[in-house]
Nucleic acid binder design. Structure first.
Lengths: 217, 217
DNA sequence: GTCTATATTGGGATAGAC
DNA sequence: GTCTATCCCAATATAGAC
């Protein structure tokens, strides 16, 4: 995002950080159009003129916020060592982990905003896609590659495709309603069931053992 | 959507239809916030006052447009008789059909708008969800049920789940980039490949024949 | 750099004539 | 029902003092 370029000296200013924080909170709560620069200034405890001293326009501020939050959230997604379990169980744990991540309010809102404003701000859409979904998919792909190295996926399985399919099934099952803000919020049991269902499909389609029921059931 | 209630006599007025058409085009091209009531009036060839005579507010007009377009588009999705082919081939055809539908500009834009504005207009989000994704899923579920009735799905397969997983995999693979407006547009070959990949996963996970390669390959 | 105060525009909604 | 003309407010951006 080129708009975030900034003199190195003012970059770490506490006021700048305050503005970025305040703007992030407001944008992620209310969307782009609904937030005025007055509100940002008030929330940050600075004047509007100061705000414009750090960010040349509302759009530039928005872009900075998105870049900031995306990388911060991506670091939340820890896939660590969940390889030490039978494939089916490991997939279920990973799936549940991913689901919780997708449904986190900040992640949902970022998704909504990126889609809603993506047309008007192409830079924003690209930055979001690269820092968000693409980075996430790459991490799950790496996980699948490790599984394949352990001969737990079929020899002809495509790890990237397996990752995409797994993520997509997780997203689709519960996320659309969540992203649209349609109640009710899915229960723990529903989330577990969604993760288990997606895990079973992946195991059947990509797992090394032919098509039999898994040991962990 | 309660806001569309209207005296029966004025409902079919040509001016009303002109307004609805113009507003639909503008909203779907530019999103909600970027379209002014002036622009709608100009595009429709009526005055603003006339516009307000038919729709009490910008929001009411928007809700009417969404309801209108959603049902119109849903009728586009014809799943007709694609049962007369081996499961794998039938799934590939159905998948490609669904992908084309999902990627149609109007469908993409409606998706984006519903997500972007869904928080501020909960009625809109619900109307979209019911008339769009939910209706679509139900139709694919019916298709899966028919396949199961023909013993082409496993006896313990859940048609609704199979439909959700199929749709989700199709959506995920290419749609996110499309919805974000990130080039390049996927090629015909990529779309075919995406449909084939999702079809194979479904066949392996839900198909009646154990896990063997299909006859049509 | 930071503030207060203000210029300016754009757009949602309405009044009143016909 | 339809138009023209207008009100009015909100919000982006800036001018000028300290």
């Amino acid at each position: 995002m080129s708009a975030t370029a900034c003199p190195a000296e003012t970059y770490r200013s506490p006021k700048r950080a305050a503005v970025l924080d305040a703007a992030g909170k407001l944008f992620l709560d209310n969307g782009y159009a609904a937030v005025s620069m007055d509100a940002v200034a008030r929330q940050a405890g600075v004047s509007k003129a100061t705000l414009y001293a750090y960010f040349t326009s509302k759009e530039a501020l928005f872009a900075a916020v998105v870049a900031n939050r995306c990388t911060a959230m991506a670091e939340t997604l820890e896939l660590a060592a969940v390889h030490d379990a039978p494939l089916d169980l490991a997939l279920r744990r990973l799936g549940r982990h991913l689901l919780d991540f997708f449904l986190a309010p900040q992640v949902v809102t970022m998704f909504r905003i990126a889609l809603g404003e993506g047309t008007r701000f192409p830079d924003l859409a690209r930055a979001y896609y690269a820092a968000g979904p693409l980075a996430g998919r790459d991490r799950v792909t790496a996980w699948m590659e490790e599984e394949k190295r352990r001969f737990r996926l079929r020899a002809d399985a495509d790890p990237r495709l397996a990752a995409e399919h797994f993520i997509s099934m997780l997203r689709g099952t519960v996320l659309l309603r969540g992203a649209l803000g349609i109640p009710p919020t899915p229960s723990e049991a529903e989330l577990d069931a969604a993760a288990a269902a997606a895990a079973e499909v992946i195991r059947r389609a990509y797992g090394a053992e032919s098509g039999a029921e898994p040991a962990t059931r």
